[in-house]
Design a protein around this nucleic acid. Structure first.
Length: 361
DNA sequence: CAAGCGTGGTC
DNA sequence: TGACCAAGCTT
């Protein structure tokens, strides 16, 4: 069915214009130096749903901490999560770590270049599979991300909703036809670079576009209306409490979150989903804490309020200070630590504001 | 398939 | 200032 679109389309010109433009105009980015499959892989996972400017410092630090696939494979997950702290979507870090360990053990430390094998690793979806195999190994595989869908929807004037999973498959088939098999890496990166620098979501700079002559949306003047993307539901609000609980030595109680779901395996201050509007409900909070940790506590004061916005929900956190003279039983994932030890644990950004409050105290 | 899963930048 | 966005994957 795509042949119909391709028939009158100057495929050769498009490929040459795009690849030549990329070779001349590409940005100088850290992961474009001394490329190895390992480094390409790290960068591609970090870049999932994340801006280049945000990734750069994380990428540099990550490679200093884990300079080789073997180094990452042998690292503790807590160290990996700590290196990922603040970058978001933390399952990326845990899946990457797990996948790298699998490559280390099963493939003797060599990133597999068979699409089927590489694609089966944790955290490697259709995009990452194509991106790593084309960039690192020169395989003519499609790497369809948001940029590519935006660029090609304009080039070919495709009005399908790019928020639908089905639409990505359509673009993958299209790229399989269009891709420059002599320069798969430059072609794929060229599409993404074009989307990042020229064919931007709002007010694309068509006058500087190397493939303007091949763009149907430009010739029809509809580039600003593409791509079509349905919007998702607004996040729901959750009323939360958190407690800064000190023992008699002034140490702070923290705990590790569950190994699945939101912020999995990160650490946090004890918290509950509950509304506090009166003093009686502070007593309820006290009861929750005493039940959770089987100790007696006193809530001493209200510390601060935090509003934290996730992609799919909003936390409104009321933070209190509390003290206890009891010790908790030593359970894995719960412990008292002193102020200086806090920096050794990975915390979500929402709780960084609590840490700031403690350190400024 | 739709929803869950983070964060910081932008206009 | 709130909505949208940024090189997606998993369930």
């Amino acid at each position: 069915m795509y042949q119909q679109w391709i028939r009158d389309f100057e495929v050769e010109s498009f490929r040459n214009n795009l690849v030549t433009w990329f070779q001349n105009e590409q940005r100088d980015l850290p992961w474009r130096h001394n490329q190895t499959p390992y480094k390409v892989w790290i960068s591609e996972v970090m870049l999932q749903q994340t801006r280049v400017d945000t990734v750069i410092p994380y990428y540099k630090q990550f490679l200093e901490l884990f300079p080789s696939l073997e180094a990452l494979a042998e690292a503790d997950e807590q160290k990996v999560l700590k290196a990922w702290e603040g970058l978001g979507y933390y399952s990326r870090a845990r899946n990457l770590h797990s996948a790298v360990k699998e490559v280390h053990e099963k493939y003797d430390g060599v990133v597999p270049e068979d699409p089927k094998q590489f694609g089966q690793l944790k955290g490697v979806g259709p995009y990452t599979q194509g991106a790593v195999l084309s960039i690192a190994y020169g395989k003519p595989e499609p790497a369809v991300d948001g940029n590519v869908m935006r660029v090609l929807s304009r080039i070919m004037s495709i009005w399908d909703d790019i928020a639908k999973p089905k639409t990505r498959k359509l673009f993958e088939e299209l790229v399989r036809i269009l891709i420059d098999t002599n320069h798969p890496s430059d072609f794929n990166q060229g599409l993404m670079e074009l989307g990042a620098l020229i064919c931007t979501p709002k007010t694309p700079n068509c006058l500087l576009c190397p493939v303007r002559e091949q763009c149907r949306a430009f010739s029809e003047g509809v580039q600003a209306e593409l791509p079509v993307k349905s919007r998702k539901k607004p996040p729901r609000s959750l009323e939360m409490t958190a407690v800064i609980l000190r023992n008699s030595q002034g140490e702070l109680l923290i705990r590790r979150r569950p190994s699945t779901g939101l912020l999995a395996n990160l650490w946090e201050f004890p918290n509950h989903e509950m509304v506090i509007e009166s003093e009686t409900q502070v007593d309820q909070l006290k009861a929750y804490i005493e039940e959770d940790f089987n100790i007696k506590v006193n809530i001493t004061k209200h510390a601060l309020n935090i509003k934290h916005v996730f992609s799919h929900l909003i936390w409104n956190i009321k933070v209190y200070e509390a003290e206890t003279t009891d010790e908790i039983s030593q359970i894995e994932g719960e412990c008292f630590v002193n102020r200086d030890q806090l920096r050794d644990y990975p915390f979500p950004v929402s709780h960084q504001k609590i840490i700031e409050y403690i350190l400024n105290d």
